[in-house]
Amino acid sequence: MDHLRYSGLSFEAQRAVFLDIVSQEPLIREALGRARSLALPDWLVVSGALYNSVWNYLTGKPSGYGIRDVDLFYFDDSDLSYEAEDSVIARAAPVFANLPLPVELRNQARVHLWYPAKFGRPCPRYTSSSHSLRFFASRTHAVGVRFDMDGQLDLVAPYGLDDIFSFRITPNRVLDNQQTHETKGARARENWPEITVVPW
């Protein structure tokens, strides 16, 4: 199987393949449908569950291989308290209760409040869920999908999709995230040895 067969194609061609793969992945399809039912503001299913599913498809690995959880972002700056975010997490828990993997919810409007304590450095105050993707440690990981108003899958990929289809983890140097880039890159290579990790 030629796992690089979509590498180097146009963004539109890669977009069509990407959305076709993730929409056929049962876990993602179910998570997206349930996320939509929550009607969270500016929501996005992001990152690992998406690009890992593409890598699984292209290397013939089973559904769900290497995926730890599903990351669900939303953006609500009307209440930046921990309690407000916690109440959303509690409301979502029964909706996602019987999925095979946990769903991790995070209000992207609040990240700048807890990020410095967790990572020892500041991060920007994000203006949307899509905006936060631009600051991921690896450009490869900056991808999200959601349903639009017409029920069609909407893709957010600020750095494109060629890194994903090229099995290449590329650093994003907008923040000092070298350790995260290297840690996630090493873990990915354990699961998909076809991957190349571009040095920081």
Rank of each mutant, 00 (worst) to 15 (best):
Y82D: 13
S87E: 08
G48H: 05
R125Y: 00
Y126E: 06
R146E: 00
E30S: 15
P158A: 14
P122Q: 06
S128A: 13
W200S: 12
N98E: 09
A137F: 04
R5Y: 01
G160R: 07
E12A: 15
E83D: 12
R187H: 05
V70L: 13
A31T: 10
W192I: 11
P158C: 14
F18Q: 13
H131I: 03
H131M: 09
R15V: 01
P158R: 10
F147Y: 12
Y159F: 14
S130M: 08
P124Y: 07
V45D: 05
E25N: 15
A90C: 10
E85H: 05
P26N: 07
H3V: 13
R173D: 03
L27W: 00
I169S: 12
P158I: 08
R139S: 12
R34N: 05
A117W: 01
S138T: 09
P199Q: 11
K118A: 13
L44Q: 09
W192A: 15
D79L: 06
D86Y: 07
L32E: 02
S63N: 08
A157N: 02
R68E: 11
L161Y: 02
L105W: 00
Y82G: 10
Y115L: 05
T59W: 01
R139V: 01
A117N: 03
R173M: 08
S132D: 04
N52A: 13
Q24L: 08
N52E: 02
E194R: 09
S130H: 02
A157D: 04
N107I: 04
R125F: 00
W114F: 12
L58A: 06
A157G: 07
H141P: 01
F136K: 12
D79S: 11
S37M: 03
D150R: 15
L99G: 10
K184F: 02
R15C: 10
Q179P: 00
H112C: 13
R125L: 03
L44P: 01
S130T: 06
R168M: 04
Y65W: 08
A92C: 06
H131C: 13
P122D: 13
Y51E: 12
T59P: 03
L99C: 07
